[in-house]
Simulated assay, not measured.
Amino acid sequence: MDARKKKILKKLLENKKPITSEYLSKLLGVSSRTIRNDIKELNEELKDKSIENNFTPGSRIFH
C-alpha cells in the first residue's frame, strides 16, 4: 500500500461522518478521480486481507 492510500485510509478511519472525494483530493493534492481509483484499489487490497469495509468510490465515502 502506497503512502497516499495510507493517508486516505487514515482519514477515513479518523472521521465519524462521511467525507467526500473532493475533500480528500484537496487534502492530498490530487484529482477526485485519483481518490476514487485509490478507494477502489484499497477495497481490493483490504478484501484480500479479509478486512470488511464499506468504502464507496462515489462522491461520498463512508466508513
Rank of each mutant, 00 (worst) to 15 (best):
T34I: 01
G29W: 10
F62K: 14
K40G: 05
I61H: 09
K17A: 15
R36A: 12
T34D: 01
N43A: 11
E44C: 02
P18S: 10
L27M: 14
N54L: 10
V30L: 11
R60N: 04
N37T: 00
E22Y: 14
E41K: 05
L46W: 12
K6V: 11
T56N: 07
L13P: 01
K11E: 15
N15S: 15
G29H: 04
S59E: 10
T34E: 02
R36M: 00
E52K: 11
P57S: 08
K10M: 12
F55Q: 01
K40A: 07
L12Q: 05
N15D: 13
K11C: 13
T20K: 09
E45H: 09
S21V: 06
F55E: 01
K10H: 15
N43C: 07
P18A: 15
N37M: 02
L24H: 11
E52V: 08
R33Y: 03
S50M: 04
K11I: 06
L46F: 04
F55N: 01
T20A: 12
I35G: 08
I61P: 03
T34H: 11
A3G: 00
S59F: 13
I61Y: 10
V30D: 01
T56G: 11
E41H: 00
P18D: 08
L42C: 06
S21A: 15
V30P: 03
N15R: 03
L13H: 06
R33H: 09
K47H: 01
S50Q: 02
Y23A: 12
T56Q: 12
I39Q: 04
K7N: 12
K47P: 00
K40H: 02
H63N: 06
